[in-house]
Each structure stands twice: as structure tokens, then as C-alpha cells.
Amino acid sequence: MEVRTIKVFTTVDNINLHTQVVDMSMTYGQQFGPTYLDGADVTKIKPHNSHEGKTFYVLPNDDTLRVEAFEYYHTTDPSFLGRYMSALNHTKKWKYPQVNGLTSIKWADNNCYLATALLTLQQIELKFNPPALQDAYYRARAGEAANFCALILAYCNKTVGELGDVRETMSYLFQHANLDSCKRVLNVVCKTCGQQQTTLKGVEAVMYMGTLSYEQFKKGVQIPCTCGKQATKYLVQQESPFVMMSAPPAQYELKHGTFTCASEYTGNYQCGHYKHITSKETLYCIDGALLTKSSEYKGPITDVFYKENSYTTTIK
């Protein structure tokens, strides 16, 4: 009895394709271990004539594949690729409408935090270190965002349907971005203890939790000093293409032309909904596939993004 075979390709990165001759009487799992086709788990399936010449994702289970996976995804987590594939199996079914010149995501599976993050990423200057993220990001900007969303979920250790947080998501993504040249110098002034300067680099240099107003941050924000008295913390120097200011959701007025974009969060910790506000020729609110415009805006804002380049204080 002759062994019926077909020729397929296996890959971990969709760049390096490895030619395989597979036995049609055995499952993919018996031949390769966990195997995925377009995100779908085909591990328990036997090869079919229609699979001839198709590319299958496999887990990096030998040295060659491990090197290829690390170079593309910059992670050695053995569960990463499987999590990416199972997320992709959902995100490829989502709709990605162009809204006001940006790629958004039609609401499904509690994905409003991903839509808000995706919209924000198209408006701030950011370059990702893992080629996987950078490639998928370019495709997302062009309207094909399924891979990018699935990668975000995998890097953030999230599953489809789980509630997510924009600030946490951005923080994970910033860790995989090139923020080497970003720098922030802060000064804390206390009447009792004097003053202390701190220099922050990388992710810490672009994120701040405690106030939404970048102007206020430049002037000074009140913080408790270690001595128990009130101290003032203010920005001395900022070198970065953008800054992200966050605070627990509270009524906040966004003035046209003073910011790049913002995240609105309605609801409580267990259950809520994100919308995205962007400042173009007027203010726009993007909620999944829905767009509304207004000249002014007041609502429960939790993150505001500002364009920056270089700032030095005039406070002496």
C-alpha cells in the first residue's frame, strides 16, 4: 500500500517557510505537534488534498525554529505562539472599519479597549522592536488589523473576551517599542525636605499616572512627601515624541487643539466601556464603527496623549 502524501510549508514567522512532505494517514499533531492554519487549530486533523502548498504555523520545537521565533517575536515564552494563534482565530472574524481616516474595530468580545489602543497607536510616533509587531502594525494602518490585535493580546497575556485596560495595554506595548531616546527629568520640591531631581528613561519617561493635564504637570502637581507634608512635583525636561497622561476616570474637559487623542471610560472596574476622542479640525468621538463630532467635550476621561518633541522648564 502506497503512502499518500502532500507537500506543505511549516513556519513560526510566515517569513521562513520549511518544506514538509506530510503523510495523509496521520494527523498534523502526530507529525508536527500543535499546528495552526489561519489561526485555526488543526492539530487533530489529517492532511487533505486542499492543504497542498498551504502554510501551517507550528510551535518552535527545534533550534532553527526557536531562533526564527525569537528573532521575529522577541520572546522565548513557549506558550506565546499558541496564544497568538488562538487569538487570531477570533480577531480574523472582527470587522476593521476605516473611521475618520483611522483603522478602528467594530465592537465584539469586549474589544473596546483594543480599538482605543489601536486608534491611539496610529496617532503617536512609535516604532516597535519585534519585527512581528512592526509588520502587523503597518498592515493594521492599511486596514488589516487582525494579526496586530492578536499579537497585542498575546504580548499582554490576554484572551479574547476578557476586559482590558488601555493604560495597561499601552504599557505592555511600550515595553516592546523603541523608547531608548526618551528621557524625563522631574523635580520634587518640599518646604521641609528641599528639592530632589529624578531622571527617568524609556517607558517611565512617557507615562504618568495622577493627572490628565500635561500643562498642569509642567506647572506642578501636589504629591505627598515622605515627611508627610505636601510637596510639588513638576516637569523639568521632556525628550520624547509623545507623552501619555493618565488618571482614574473623572469628568474632564478636553479643549480642541490642546491634545492629540484621549480615552474615555464609562462604567466601573468590573464592567465598563471605552471610547476614543481625537482632536482634528474639530473633536471626534470614535466608538467602534461609530463616529460623532463636537466642538467641545466633557466626560469621564482616563488617558490623554500629547505630541511632544523637546521641553525644558522655565521655572527657576
Rank of each mutant, 00 (worst) to 15 (best):
T211V: 08
G267V: 15
V21H: 13
C271K: 00
V166T: 01
S246L: 00
E71W: 04
Q238C: 04
E239N: 07
K307W: 05
N100F: 03
I277A: 04
F174G: 04
Q251I: 15
L151H: 02
N178F: 00
Y265P: 01
G257Q: 04
W107N: 07
Q20H: 13
V22Y: 05
F128K: 02
T226L: 09
E215Q: 06
A154G: 01
K95I: 14
L179Y: 02
C156N: 11
C112R: 00
A145M: 02
I124C: 04
L283Q: 00
A69N: 07
T314C: 08
Q123E: 07
Q270A: 10
S213H: 11
V67K: 14
C149R: 03
P248K: 07
Q98L: 12
R4Y: 14
H273F: 02
E253K: 13
P47I: 06
N309V: 11
Y252E: 04
Y234A: 07
Y72P: 05
I6C: 10
L133C: 11
L254R: 04
F128Y: 05
F80H: 07
H51T: 03
Y297E: 04
F174T: 00
K293G: 10
P249N: 05
G29T: 05
K255D: 07
P248R: 09
L102W: 00
E204H: 09
Q196K: 13
F80K: 05
E68H: 06
Q197H: 03
Q20S: 13
S279C: 14
N111W: 07
M207I: 06
T76A: 15
R83A: 08
K218S: 03
N100T: 09
S171L: 11
G101L: 06
H256R: 09
T258P: 03
S279E: 00
N89L: 12
K293F: 11
A150W: 03
Y57T: 12
Q230I: 14
K275F: 08
G29Q: 08
T64S: 11
V160W: 05
M209F: 15
N61Y: 15
G82P: 13
K201F: 14
Y297T: 00
K275Y: 02
C149M: 12
L88K: 06
G164D: 00
T312A: 09
N110A: 05
V22K: 04
H256N: 00
T55I: 10
C193Y: 02
E2S: 09
K127Y: 08
Y172R: 10
E239C: 10
C271I: 10
V189I: 11
A150D: 00
I105R: 02
G272K: 00
S171V: 09
V236W: 05
H273N: 02
T278Q: 08
K191G: 10
T302H: 05
N110I: 02
R4T: 13
Y72V: 04
C112I: 00
T314M: 12
I277C: 00
T313H: 13
K95Q: 14
T232C: 01
E125W: 01
Q222I: 09
H48Y: 10
V203P: 14
K191F: 09
Q230S: 12
F217Y: 02
Q134H: 11
E281F: 03
D41T: 10
S213T: 03
C261A: 07
E71G: 09
T211G: 06
S310L: 14
H74R: 06
Y84R: 06
G288Y: 00
L119Q: 02
K307H: 11
W94E: 05
T116L: 06
M85T: 09
S246H: 04
L163W: 08
L17N: 11
Q30N: 00
M24F: 10
M207Q: 05
G288D: 06
G143L: 01
T313K: 15
I301D: 01
K293I: 10
D165G: 13
H176A: 04
L59I: 14
Q237N: 08
E52P: 04
Y28S: 09
K44E: 14
T192K: 07
M207E: 06
G82H: 13
I286A: 01
V42E: 04
D303H: 00
Y57E: 05
L173E: 00
T11G: 12
P47D: 08
S240Y: 01
L81G: 03
H276P: 00
G272V: 08
T116A: 12
E253A: 12
F80D: 03
M26I: 13
A150M: 07
T43K: 08
Y284M: 10
Q222N: 10
G101V: 04
D63R: 02
P78N: 10
H74E: 09
A250I: 12
Q197Y: 05
D303G: 06
F305P: 01
V236C: 09
L118D: 08
Y214I: 08
K201Q: 14
P248E: 06
G299T: 04
F70S: 09
N100L: 12
G210L: 01
V12W: 09
M170V: 06
V160H: 07
T103M: 04
L81A: 04
A69K: 06
T258H: 10
M244L: 07
G194E: 05
E204N: 12
N49A: 13
E168R: 15
D135S: 10
T43I: 07
A108D: 06
G194R: 02
P249A: 03
E144I: 05
L200I: 08
L235Y: 00
P241R: 06
E162S: 07
L17H: 09
H90G: 13
A145D: 01
M207D: 02
D63T: 13
V221I: 15
V236I: 07
T278P: 01
C190R: 05
C261F: 02
I286M: 08
A231I: 01
L173V: 04
G143S: 05
V58Y: 02
R66D: 09
N178E: 10
A117L: 00
T232D: 01
H74A: 03
K54L: 13
T5E: 09
A145C: 06
G33E: 02
N178R: 07
A231D: 05
T278R: 04
C285I: 14
P131K: 06
T55W: 09
S181D: 13
T282P: 03
C182K: 10
M209P: 00
K183Q: 13
L121I: 09
T199W: 01
C271H: 13
Y113D: 02
Q98N: 14
Y28M: 11
D62V: 06
G288N: 08
Q197N: 06
P300D: 07
L17S: 12
R139C: 10
T282S: 13
G202T: 04
E239D: 09
Y274H: 00
T199N: 06
Q230T: 14
V185T: 08
M26P: 08
N268V: 15
G202F: 03
M245F: 11
V8W: 07
I124K: 04
L119R: 01
A247L: 07
K106A: 15
T5Q: 09
T11Q: 12
Y234N: 02
S104F: 06
A150F: 05
Y284L: 15
I124Q: 05
Q195Y: 10
G257Y: 09
A205D: 02
N178H: 10
S294H: 15
F174W: 08
Y311Q: 09
C112N: 00
L151A: 06
E296F: 14
Y265E: 00
C225L: 04
S310H: 13
Q251A: 07
N16A: 10
Q175A: 13
T198A: 08
S79W: 12
L114E: 07
T55M: 08
A136G: 06
L133K: 05
I15F: 15
S279K: 02
F56M: 08
D63P: 05
G33Y: 07
H273R: 06
H276A: 03
Y137D: 04
F70A: 14
S104I: 01
Q134T: 09
C193W: 03
A40H: 12
N268E: 15
H48C: 10
G82R: 12
N157F: 07
E239H: 10
A289M: 05
Y113V: 03
E144W: 06
L126Q: 06
Q30R: 14
T10R: 12
T314G: 14
K106Q: 14
K229T: 12
H256E: 11
A154V: 00
Y297C: 07
V21T: 13
N309G: 12
T198F: 14
K127P: 09
T19N: 14
C156M: 10
P131I: 03
A142C: 12
L179H: 07
Y297R: 03
L121K: 01
A40D: 14
D41H: 07
P130H: 06
T43Q: 13
S79H: 13
Q98K: 10
E296T: 14
I105S: 01
G210H: 01
A132M: 01
E296W: 09
A115V: 13
V99E: 11
N268C: 15
K183I: 11
E296N: 14
T313G: 09
L291A: 15
R141N: 09
C261Y: 01
D41I: 11
P300E: 14
A146P: 02
A250R: 10
H18M: 11
F128S: 05
V67G: 14
P130L: 04
P131Q: 15
S104T: 00
K106F: 10
